[in-house]
Computed example of a mutant assay.
Amino acid sequence: MHLDWWTIGLQTINFGILVWLLHRFLYKPVLTMIDARKAEVRGQFDVAKDVEAKAKAELAAVEAERAGIAAEREAALKAAATQAQEMAEARRAQAERDAEALMDSTRKTLASEREGALDEARRIALDLGSDFAQRLLAEVPMQYRAEAWIERIEQHLKAMPQAEREALVQQLANGKPLAIVTACALPPATADHWNARLRQSLGVSSAMTFAVDPALTAGAELHFPTAILRFSWQSALAAARMEAGAHGQPR
């Protein structure tokens, strides 16, 4: 086989020129374009990673905000439940206080009404007793009534402390009279009897005057110049009525 070295050499030169041309005008621009495309893709990937990171951050913020909202909602519900319970307890306590105040007011009202009724009953009993006693007393002869009154006066004067009795006697000095007031007029003989017995009990010789005051109901009063000794039913009934009124006062 015969080889044509000139042909082989020319073909080699042509192949080298072809390779250079391909490398210069085709392969190198393609590599440059591939590198540029890689850089562009890498840039887009980095942007995508940044976007993903931002999206994750925003999602985390949203989740945190949602968790905060849930916590606030739960706290608000708990606070509302606590407030509602406190308000219910306050209303119950107020209702209990109102009920207790009403019961206390009712008890006081009932007690006051009961005391008022008892006081009125006492007054009625006193009035009836006084009226009944007056009727019975009217049937007793005057001499017996007068004797009972003068004995009571004498017993009182005898039981008085010496200093008090002397003070009363001192008021009758210099002829000052002693006024004897009775519920009804004493017969002259009875008046004279009283005069003698009172002078003896007091140890005086002063003049004595007699007067009548039907308001005394029964009994008598000794009116000294600056003092009065009361032995009448009027004073006893007044004391009883005052005691009845004291019982009727609210406590």
Rank of each mutant, 00 (worst) to 15 (best):
His223Tyr: 14
Ala99Lys: 06
His156Ser: 12
Val51His: 10
Thr182Gln: 06
Arg165Val: 00
Gln11Lys: 05
Glu139His: 13
Arg92Thr: 14
Glu86Pro: 04
Thr12Val: 00
Ala196Ile: 14
Gly43Glu: 15
Lys78Arg: 11
Arg107Val: 04
Leu222Ser: 09
Asp46Asn: 13
Leu157Thr: 03
Leu198Ile: 08
Ile150Thr: 02
His223Asp: 12
Ala196Trp: 14
Trp194Val: 05
Pro187Thr: 11
Arg66Ala: 15
Asp98Asn: 07
Glu120Gln: 09
Leu136Gly: 03
Leu110His: 02
Glu164Gly: 01
Arg24Cys: 12
Ala227Cys: 11
Ala125Trp: 15
Ala189Gly: 10
Pro29Tyr: 03
Lys38Phe: 03
Asp98Gly: 00
Arg199Glu: 04
Ala76Gln: 05
Lys54Thr: 06
Thr32Asp: 12
Asp35Pro: 06
Ala80Glu: 12
Asp50His: 14
Thr32Leu: 13
Gln249Tyr: 12
Ala227Thr: 14
Asp4Cys: 02
Arg251Thr: 11
Arg66Tyr: 13
Met160Cys: 09
Leu157Arg: 15
Glu72Lys: 14
Phe231Pro: 08
Ala76Glu: 10
Ala111His: 05
Arg197Glu: 06
Ser206Val: 03
Arg199Asn: 09
Thr217Phe: 14
Arg145Val: 04
Gln85Ser: 08
Asp213Lys: 01
Leu59Gln: 15
Glu139Lys: 06
Ala64Trp: 01
Val204Tyr: 02
Glu154Gln: 09
Leu222Phe: 10
Lys56Glu: 10
Pro250Asp: 10
Ile228His: 07
Glu96Ser: 05
Phe224Trp: 12
Leu110Asn: 09
Ala236Ile: 13
Met103Ser: 04
Val140Tyr: 04
Leu216Ser: 10
Leu178Met: 08
Pro214Glu: 09
Met33His: 05
Ala215His: 04
Ala146Gln: 12
Ala238Arg: 11
Leu137Arg: 12
Asp104Pro: 00
Gln134Glu: 15
Gln85Gly: 11
Ala211Thr: 02
Arg91Phe: 09
Glu58Trp: 05
Gly203Gln: 01
Glu243Met: 14
Leu222Glu: 09
Gln171Gly: 00
Pro188Phe: 05
Gln83Met: 13
